[in-house]
């Protein structure tokens, strides 16, 4: 692929004290990743330097403040500086409010770069919830964070879990079941379908096929077990079909995932999608935050404090997430 066409992807290095910086470095150096995109790390220069040394990464770091300074031809790793306050002590595998703040600071810097057109997509390394909570920050995962940082209602950015050829979009996510029921509106279901279609097209699926699951048992069984399918979900599907989107449903969520030829399943509840994903995926799940103006993905594993700084962390999930955003999975299948 011609150099200038390869997308620039910002990799927010996540919790500075976990495995995030290490897998980000390994990802940026991966030959396949460099073939498909132009990576730029985002993080605290001192922490990334320490992580590189501990992991035996010898490539030099080029610390930059804007994308124009980046270069992918000299073997150096480009790093957008998102520095921690001067004098912040570094340690591997430690909970610290400063690290919690730094985690979200580098995600914020990466999102800004995407909004400014400096990068085409963002991949974020794992967070540590304890450190973020210690910083006094309310954080329930990247989708709502992306929503806030891009000026959207935090319920209107949706999590799309991706593994293999399966993608599952969650209309509601980190809310109790009672609140989820209240959030299921015709507009929001339509918006989740539209976001799924747009994200699939950005990922290189030319004519996305979408299946939508019900909220109630057996998708309401014709109104016997609940009315939302008839009054909310089916009308939202009809709206989107009228808008030219190839979408069908609502189907009973317990049997829907066996349908063939579906590019994305849209579910109503966190557990409807997550139970399925965690049974079918083998740890290489990427979580895309869709419906915002930017393309944003995280990886589904944690910051693994127990192996931080040991050079043992496996970057496979992040490499897959980066390649997915760069369109490598689709292109390879066409070859």
């Amino acid at each position: 692929m011609a150099h200038a066409q390869r997308p620039r992807i910002a990799i927010a290095t996540g919790d500075p004290s976990g495995i995030g910086p290490e897998i980000s470095l390994k990802t940026a150096l991966d030959a396949d990743v460099r073939r498909w995109c132009r990576p730029i790390l985002v993080g605290d220069p001192m922490a990334v330097e320490r992580q590189a040394a501990a992991a035996g990464v010898s490539a030099p770091l080029r610390v930059i403040v804007n994308a124009a300074e980046a270069d992918w031809d000299d073997g150096a790793i480009n790093l957008f500086a998102a520095p921690m306050p001067p004098g912040t002590p570094f340690a591997f595998g430690r909970n610290d409010a400063a690290f919690g703040r730094a985690t979200l600071e580098c995600a914020r810097r990466a999102i800004k770069a995407a909004l400014a057109g400096e990068v085409e997509a963002v991949v974020a390394a794992p967070t540590n919830q304890t450190s973020i909570a210690a910083a006094g920050i309310a954080f329930d995962g990247y989708p709502s964070f992306v929503a806030r940082e891009t000026g959207m209602n935090h319920h209107d950015v949706y999590l799309m879990l991706c593994f293999g050829d399966t993608r599952i979009v969650h209309t509601t996510l980190h809310v109790g079941v009672a609140q989820a029921v209240a959030l299921i509106t015709r507009a929001r279901v339509a918006s989740a379908i539209r976001a799924a279609d747009a994200a699939l097209r950005r990922l290189g699926v030319p004519a996305p096929k979408i299946a939508v699951g019900g909220l109630n048992p057996h998708a309401g069984e014709g109104g016997l077990f609940g009315s939302e399918e008839g009054t909310i979900i089916a009308p939202a599907i009809a709206d989107m079909r009228a808008g030219g989107i190839d979408v069908a449903g609502p189907f009973g969520a317990d049997t829907m995932f066996h349908r063939k030829g579906v590019d994305a399943f849209v579910v109503m509840l966190h557990d409807q999608g997550h139970i399925t994903a965690k049974l079918l995926a083998e740890n290489r799940t990427a979580g895309l935050a869709i419906g915002s103006p930017i393309l944003f993905s995280s990886v589904a594993h944690g910051s693994a404090f127990d192996i931080a700084g040991k050079g043992e962390a496996n970057p496979a999930a992040m490499i897959e997430a980066v390649k997915r955003l760069a369109g490598a999975d689709r292109a390879q299948r066409r070859d």
């Binding site: 079941v177 109630n216 048992p217 057996h218 969520a253 317990d254 049997t255 995932f257 066996h258 509840l269 966190h270 557990d271 409807q272 997550h274 139970i275 399925t276 994903a277 965690k278 049974l279 079918l280």
Partner: peptide, 29 residues
């Protein structure tokens, strides 16, 4: 979402779920 993988299933004989899809999705999968 984390109680149905093989290692988790080895720790119990039956799972009580609160609603239809929570029980039916894992067993149909």
């Amino acid at each position: 979402d984390t109680m149905f993988h093989p290692a988790a299933r080895a720790k119990y004989d039956v799972a009580l779920c609160m609603y239809h899809d929570q029980a039916l999705i894992p067993i149909k999968t």
